[in-house]
Design a protein around this nucleic acid. Structure first.
Lengths: 160, 160
DNA sequence: CGGCATCCTTAGGGATACTG
DNA sequence: CAGTATCCCTAAGGATGCCG
């Protein structure tokens, strides 16, 4: 059985180990993220939304839909529902990104930059910059040695 | 109006320019990618699938569903349906990634690494390595100056 | 303010059968 | 092999209204 395949090479039927949706972590991730609404709620969490009302108004979702998806996000550990307190205000509950949720940032940024490039005439409404240095930020593929990796230089191989 | 916001800071109501789903390129991208099936088909295109039958059997989708999503992917310009020819075989049509489709690779890799980290006990079934150098490949946020960028160092600002 | 209950419409997607 | 045509079921998600 082939153990290493190049992207995008010729598909070998023996490479079927790459296509098992029960273990493929792309498929598993999509099982958690599932819908557009989920991504929009995550977007707002990154932008700093914490209150139910903020999520509803800023995503444009209906409140039952937002409620259901927020609950799933909490159940799946991407958001945490915890009390917080603005000074002088009464204590309130709010949704906050967990580490698990925050690590989806490269995916969101990847979607943004792809959309900026291919789905917007103007390059999109917003850009990301590195605070301090000020340079533009992108999601890119790098190896541990620091090389930028092009699609043709990618090898997929089984773990272990 | 606030023109720059930090991730993940406090949400300012004036930041509503970030939440317009008609221009937000995250929302627009999700409009194109929409469903789990679409991502699975793209995954297979990256792995080298070209024939309808390969997409069906490897994604586990039903053929009507695969047919509908593949058509959308072609209509949206992520795949191209073009004739190709294996040596000695008759000419056949096949689906191939366009540049537009291929540039979604960071998103797919992002989903894979997130799933490997958070949804798999074993670190996932597969890993990506840099051909030649051999080091592990990840999707990461970098600025044009080459700095790795952490979530707290990200600034979002309007284009133009 | 932060939801839940209800109702409704639509789209996603499987099973099966059929065609060029 | 590469799909299309039906049929059917389920989930997503909006609208409206209510409630602590």
């Amino acid at each position: 059985m082939e153990t290493t395949i190049r992207l995008t090479g010729t598909l070998d039927p023996r490479d079927s180990w790459t296509a098992d949706n029960d273990t493929c972590t792309i498929a598993l991730s999509l099982g958690v993220l599932s819908t557009r609404s989920t991504f929009l709620l995550l977007r707002e969490a990154f932008y700093g939304a914490t209150r139910f009302d903020e999520f509803v108004s800023r995503t444009g979702l209906s409140s039952p839909s937002a409620s259901a998806r927020l609950r799933e996000l909490v159940e799946n550990g991407l958001l945490q529902f915890e009390p917080y307190k603005d000074e002088g205000q009464r204590t309130r509950n709010g949704y906050h990104l967990t580490d698990k949720g925050a690590e989806l940032l490269p995916v969101l940024v990847g979607l943004m930059q792809w959309g900026n490039r291919w789905l917007s005439d103007s390059g999109g409404p917003a850009e990301l910059h590195h605070h301090g240095c000020g340079e533009r930020v992108t999601a890119e593929l790098r190896c541990a040695a620091g090389h930028e990796v092009d699609i043709g230089e990618l090898e997929l191989s089984p773990v272990r």
